[in-house]
Design a protein around this nucleic acid. Structure first.
Lengths: 343, 343
DNA sequence: TTGAAAGCGGTACCAG
DNA sequence: CTGGTACCGCTTTCAA
């Protein structure tokens, strides 16, 4: 069923039917109701491509899958982000399109998406320090919003980020307050902006306690389970092992926990772990592990907020840059008293 | 840059330029080269919507995000599937569009996608036993391929699935061969077709060893970490606890490991765990934990295979139904000798 | 081998 | 308040 046949059935012009369906005021109520009824009856939906051609907008938002370069695996919370963003976009009539790049040349893809008119805007994931994609998107004039920020980027841009620095500062301070002095940091790749900020928060908190950061307690790499495992094992083998560890991702944390277990130690007794995670069963079940921030649900929420901002941005490109800072919740466990400090 | 201005710059008609760019044979080589050069120079890309309008195809494949109903969280391997599928689709000029439904009425979304002409085909995720979406898609005539199968579906349909039954049969048998007699199964919701098949494989293997399945050792629910934790804890508290556990997902397995640890037991010594996982560091590091199948990479591979089949299917709708069975690898650990059996 | 023109299915301007 | 018509950018007959 298309507009032409629908209007013929109604004995009206395409113009009138279109207007009735799109809420234009100059249509009589009687006609509007009649048209809406018929549209419902025939299950009419305007063709997306035709509509897009006529209006010059695609009503599609693009996103490039953030795959880790080495293992071409996707962050496990990606789905949650997409779920949130897609839901929010749908509320404004937008669809979400996913792309992927094999090589490093993400710029080529953005250029092409724009040239084809395939998307009205894009979401930029996993920003690096001094990320070249930002000036590129600005140059080609494709509306975009960044999930995260990019240190070193001078110009204005729109972003939604979680307060990584502050979160890790608080988490570190929390551990310091419990009496820990040797705190390990398993961080993401420090080309990634978020990782840089997390380390900053960590070292700031240490500095506040008069502790110089120990390179042997800081690792940064792709956040896989084996990374978490290997580095934790190394750290636990040190002459002065850490009594607490900050893990920057769910996968890494799994490795951390396993390494602790294999070393014959117990989490929350011999070694405290703070990590991004969202399963509060740790707390519910009395495990002495403070949880840092609710990744899965917060990522979903970030997707929603980000999508809303992007839609607003496209509607009004002249508006001032949009920024939004999410504060991570620091959910702490039942360990109100100090965790026994080893060594 | 659009076709009109490009052809004007070349002093050719739109027709000729279009033909040259789309590889039609009736264009002289000289013209073709000239056109291609100009297209490159001006970075010309045909407008997707216009092309789609003219050809009647959208060159877009749709997919609805499989969110778990209760916790609205997305399977962590979803991103890997999308990554694989998107990559394969891109090779054929297709884009991937993601949708999401809030209510149970996925059918409405399919109807709309089809009516709008937004997609040329869809990928169906997470099929249930007797899944109503399959007859629905058939009815509305939208090409589709199922990731998994649906027991009880009489008509023909296209699918790509992993051999869940056989995998769990082999895994169970492997444990039986090691001397285990009490084997727990943490399964997904058994409305899901894959969960039903996994249980079948499990019970078949037990039957082969003359063991009657014990309801106290079988749990099935949404595969979260807390599910894995809680049910494992329950099972370990039994008078006759399991000496091995089959966990149906990565998240559940995390919970399993934690419960084992909390009970003061050691994995691979007191309790063996077989699970879907892909981080081979377990093996590399000598942990006595057999790994069942490489989820992340195999899901990615499934995405690729599925996308290829769907593209072929759309190109030739009259062809016989496409089916593809993936055999899961059973990667076993270093425990060539029997694992000490407790109790 | 090339080009003119008629769609594809909508939107939106301009009349009436 | 309603309708005629000119696009939107591309493909595809049909003629030349």
């Amino acid at each position: 069923m298309n507009l032409k046949t629908l209007s013929e059935k109604l004995g009206l012009s395409q113009t009138t039917v279109s207007r009735a369906l799109n809420g234009y005021p100059e249509v009589s109520t009687a006609t509007r109701l009649r048209v809406e009824e018929a549209a419902r009856q025939y299950n009419y939906r305007p063709n997306s491509r035709a509509k897009g051609l006529a209006t010059g907008r695609s009503m599609v938002i693009g996103q490039i899958i953030p795959t880790s370069i080495q293992h071409e695996m996707v962050n496990p919370v990606f789905g949650d982000f997409v779920s949130g963003a897609t839901q929010a976009l749908a509320g404004h009539g937008y669809d979400m399109m996913i792309s992927r790049v094999l090589d490093e040349d993400e710029g080529k893809v953005y250029r092409e998406l724009h040239a084809r008119g395939a998307v009205d805007g894009v979401i930029l994931q996993g920003p690096l320090v001094e990320d070249p994609r930002i000036p590129l998107l600005r140059e080609i004039g494709l509306p975009f919003i960044v999930h995260g920020r990019s240190t070193g980027e001078a110009g204005p841009y729109n972003w939604v980020d979680v307060n990584n620095r502050r979160s890790f500062q608080r988490a570190t301070r929390f551990l310091l307050d419990l009496g820990h002095r040797r705190i390990g940091l398993l961080n993401g790749h420090e080309t990634m902006d978020f990782a840089r900020r997390r380390r900053a928060g960590y070292t700031e908190a240490l500095a506040g306690a008069g502790i110089a950061p120990d390179p042997a307690l800081m690792a940064s790499d792709e956040m896989t389970e084996s990374f978490g495992f290997a580095r934790t094992r190394d750290m636990l083998a040190l002459a002065a092992p850490p009594t607490a560890i900050l893990a920057s991702s769910m996968l890494a944390a799994i490795g951390v926990r396993r390494a602790i277990q294999e070393a014959g130690l117990r989490m929350g007794r011999d070694v405290s772990v703070i990590t991004h995670d969202d399963d509060l069963s740790y707390l519910k079940n009395g495990e002495d592990v403070p949880i840092f921030t609710a990744t899965r649900s917060s990522v979903r929420r970030a997707g929603i907020i980000l999508a809303e901002k992007l839609v607003a941005l496209i509607a009004n490109p002249a508006a001032a840059p949009v920024t939004h800072m999410l504060e991570a919740e620091l959910v702490v466990g039942r360990s109100t008293g100090p965790v026994p400090v080893k060594g």
